[in-house]
Nucleic acid binder design. Sequence first.
DNA 1: CCGGATCCGTTTCGATACTG
DNA 2: CAGTATCGAAACGGATCCGG
Lengths: 145, 145
Amino acid sequence: MKKTHKRSDCPVSRALDILGDKWTLLIIRDIVFGGFRFYNEFLNSGEGIATNVLSDRLKLLEQNGFIESKQYEKQRTKKLYLLTEKGIGLIPIVVELLIWGFDFDTSLPIPEDRKVIIARMKYDKENLIKEITESVRKHDSKNFC
Amino acid sequence: MKKTHKRSDCPVSRALDILGDKWTLLIIRDIVFGGFRFYNEFLNSGEGIATNVLSDRLKLLEQNGFIESKQYEKQRTKKLYLLTEKGIGLIPIVVELLIWGFDFDTSLPIPEDRKVIIARMKYDKENLIKEITESVRKHDSKNFC
DNA sequence: CCGGATCCGTTTCGATACTG
DNA sequence: CAGTATCGAAACGGATCCGG
């Protein structure tokens, strides 16, 4: 499913072995900032991920302890995907990616309704991360993005 | 050289189109925290990157404005690879990756000589990032890692 | 319907050997 | 020293199928 490649002992290397692809961090972002919890939500996030790739990544994230999956009580055919504490630890990385993107990818205008949250990312980062983290822990995402 | 895949307009998506692989952010890390500037240094960083992959990634990083290459005056057969301002903007992301790695990859002991810098990453992050950034701008890397 | 699994043609990656 | 060339392996993406 994933390539096995000899790696240095640096934690960053090993982290990138799992996170270092085009999809994995987008899934994390969608959980954190989109409040996504279902397979279908990720699939229709607008990124155009294929079903098999999504399936792969969710499995890989679960195997590596970033997310956990549960039956959805209200609809037994559905599964909930939730961040673990390990996965919640990725929130600062995602926030930095977002900040970087809005700072350096100036080819697109920033939607009005995002400007507030982007400003907070930059000028009140620590508190924002705490808020988001608490929100994700309680599974009552406020759809920050 | 790189796959072209339809992407959403989100800056994070587009950033991950370039940064989202196992090698690119390691190269950035090596520039920032290792003070690396030459092809050979990246090649022998201990990560085991292949020559063509390194070549590809350096080219890609340059094409996308993250690094620039210059002739090395003291040895004309050598090339210097330096971060641009856009690349310097990635430093917070790399720092967060490092922090995450040391927090959540507990399978390896943290070397004594890194504990100080890791502590600073967590408790004096903003100032540390400023110091590193200035250091990288002046090309007198202090080998923070 | 929902969450995948499987197959398959195409693209990309990467290890090694080789070159200017 | 700094890369190319080659070529098999892996990953991708789309379509389709399947079990609940």
